[in-house]
Each structure stands twice: as C-alpha cells, then as structure tokens.
C-alpha cells in the first residue's frame, strides 16, 4: 500500500445520506485536529481509502472489484475482517468513525498496514498494585481546594489537573491512559504542585477534559465505598439534576438510585435498605454526584418520612402493583438483570 505524505483521499460507495453526513462530520473534526482527509465526490474512486456499505447492492458489487492499492473500510450490519479491509458495524457513529479514521491515517503514513481491528468500546481493565490514594480523592481535593497539580501514575501517564478552571489535561498518550486510570480500582499516584503559569505552558499539546467528567468516572469506580469526609449516611439528600450518564457507563443500579434521589429526599442508609443495591455502589454514586455538584443535602433525616420535591407535590395517581410488576417483567424481557 502506498505511503501518504499529505491528504488521504476517501471515496464512498453505497452509503446512505445519513452515513455520508456522519463521514463528512468525522472528516471535518479530524481536519480540526490536523488529520487531513479529502472526501472525494461521488463516483470518484481514485482514493487511497474507500468506504463501502456492504448492505447495499452497489456496495456488494464494488467489493469484488479488488484494488491492491486501496484500503477498504466496510460498513455493514454484520462485518468480517479480511486482507486490506477494515470493518465497522452499523450504525456508525461520528466518534467511533473519527477514531478509526485517525488510526488508519497514522498507519498509512508510516508503514504498510496490517489488518486493523476496531477497538471494542470497553477494553479489559487490568488492576494495578498498591494504592496510596485514589484518583477520585486527588481530583476531588484539587476541585475543592482549587489546587493545580501534576499527577504521575503508573505506566508513565502524566496528568495535569487544574482545580481553578475545572480542567484536566494530558498529552495524547496519557489521555488514552486516563480513561483506563479513571476506571482502575487502584494505582500508584505521585502528586506535585504546579503554578498556573506552569500549567499553561504544558497544556499546549494536551487533550483537555472537564474535571467534573473525570471526577464522575473516578467516583463511580472508586474501590473504597467510604462516604466523603464530613458527610453522613443519615442525612436526607436529593439530586439537583439527573447525572449526565453516557451510553458507555450504563449501570442499572445507578439508574435506580438516580430515579429515587430525583424524586425523594432520603438518607443513604434508607436507600440501601430500600433498593437492595450494594452499599458500595450507593456510596460511590453519592460521592461522585456530590463531587460534581449534583446533590442537595437537605439535612439530618434519620427515620424521617420521604419528602417529595415541591415541583412534584401535586397529588399523583400512582401506578398499581400490577404496573410495578410489569416494569420488572419488561426490564427482564429487554435483557436487564433486575
């Protein structure tokens, strides 16, 4: 396969209008990041990379027109890997397509590419030994005390945390490690202070994330299951807003906790009894939600009756027990473990 010095030309075959737009947006975003692709007009096949929807007749037909100098990205409901082929299951999303095109670009710029395996959304997380402090605690302290710090972790990851402007920065390699680190149950952390000027000088080539997003991920993955210092399991608490769950951190338990805390002011002890969700999950959810500013502490409320939000104080007709059991059956039917 040919090496490429500049733009990499992409052609497409059989893509519907929506997928074409997804491709255009992904290419546009890559261009903003300095990864240059050139999207060719329809029917122009003189490209280094051709994107084919193999679910269409046009796509299937094109598939048999082998071109050794052309890398093929196959989109389809069921995909398989073959020589010179990269495959991606439909529906395609901008973020995953962008990530894949970035990898393709890197490979094509350097060396003849071996078959590329699309990364699975959830990679296996390998626990690291020895814990001095949790990442959540370091991030939370930085936010609370408005610290600017450098964090060195295992695997040479170097992360810069700015509690003043609420950002976390890491170079590309460390940024890739950050997502894993946030989910690790433990790792060795070395924290050192930075000045605002030092922070500004190092973030030029860094990927910058919101501190709250990192806090949330680290909080719900924290192994300790210990409530934040100064907080009580007996205080009545309530959610101010529904957490910004993404499709990647779906956890049925958190939906149950969020649904209750969105509706009622209740103590965590009472929540543990009522939901039959492991205490550690409830505490982690609380810690993470509090850290990102989603919790209202209403007050000490041991054994207090449930209080309902004023906005929902209007009497409501509650679904019957029959409805309740339907919810369970429907959840099981959809494959959720309830």
């Amino acid at each position: 396969m040919a090496k490429i010095d500049g733009n990499l030309a992409i052609s497409m075959v059989g893509l519907d209008e929506l997928d074409q737009r997804v491709l255009r947006v992904a290419v546009g975003l890559l261009s903003d990041d300095g990864v240059n692709y050139q999207l060719l007009a329809k029917n122009n096949a003189a490209s280094q990379l051709v994107v084919i929807d193999v679910d269409t007749e046009k796509g299937k037909k094109h598939l048999f027109q082998e071109n050794e100098n052309q890398l093929t990205l196959l989109l389809g409901s069921s995909t398989c890997l073959a020589k010179n082929h990269v495959a991606m299951a439909k529906p395609i999303r901008v973020s995953s397509l962008k990530e894949l095109l970035e990898k393709v670009h890197q490979r094509l710029r350097s060396t003849p590419a071996p078959p590329i395996v699309v990364p699975r959304e959830e990679e296996q997380v390998v626990p690291l030994p020895v814990m001095e402090d949790t990442l959540f605690e370091v991030l939370y302290r930085a936010k609370q005390q408005k610290q600017i710090v450098k964090l060195n972790c295992d695997r040479d990851a170097e992360i810069f945390i700015n509690g003043v402007n609420g950002t976390v920065a890491a170079n590309e390699k460390s940024h890739r490690a950050l997502d894993k680190l946030l989910k690790l149950t433990s790792c060795t952390l070395v924290v050192s202070d930075l000045s605002a000027t030092e922070f500004e000088s190092v973030i030029d080539h860094c990927v910058v994330s919101a501190l709250d997003a990192c806090l949330w991920k680290a909080g719900v993955s924290c192994p300790k299951g210990i409530i934040l210092s100064g907080h009580s399991m007996d205080a009545a608490v309530k959610l101010k807003a529904w957490p910004g769950f993404t499709r990647h951190d779906f956890k049925p338990e958190y939906f149950k906790i969020a649904a209750i805390l969105a509706r009622h002011a209740i103590s965590l002890n009472r929540l543990v009894e009522a939901l039959k969700v492991p205490k550690v999950e409830i505490i982690n959810f609380y810690n993470a939600a509090y850290a990102v500013g989603l919790i209202d502490v209403v007050g000490e409320a041991k054994n207090a009756p449930l209080s309902t939000a004023a906005s929902e104080a209007k009497p409501v007709s509650k679904p019957s027990a029959v409805s309740s059991s339907i919810f369970g059956k429907l959840a099981r039917r959809l494959g959720f473990n309830v």
Partner: peptide, 26 residues
C-alpha cells in the same frame, strides 16, 4: 442513536427506573 438497540434499551430502562421510583417502591 435510534438505530442502535442498546441505546434505545438504555432509554427504556431509565424510564422503567423512573416509573418504579414513582410507583412507590420505597
């Protein structure tokens, strides 16, 4: 993404959690 079954299921599960909390599970 409406085309993506897991996404739609997550949406429905969230609704079920909300309905369950409403139905007086506590």
């Amino acid at each position: 993404d409406g085309r993506c079954e897991p996404d739609v299921k997550v949406l429905v599960y969230a609704l079920l959690a909300v309905l369950d909390a409403h139905s007086g599970a506590l």
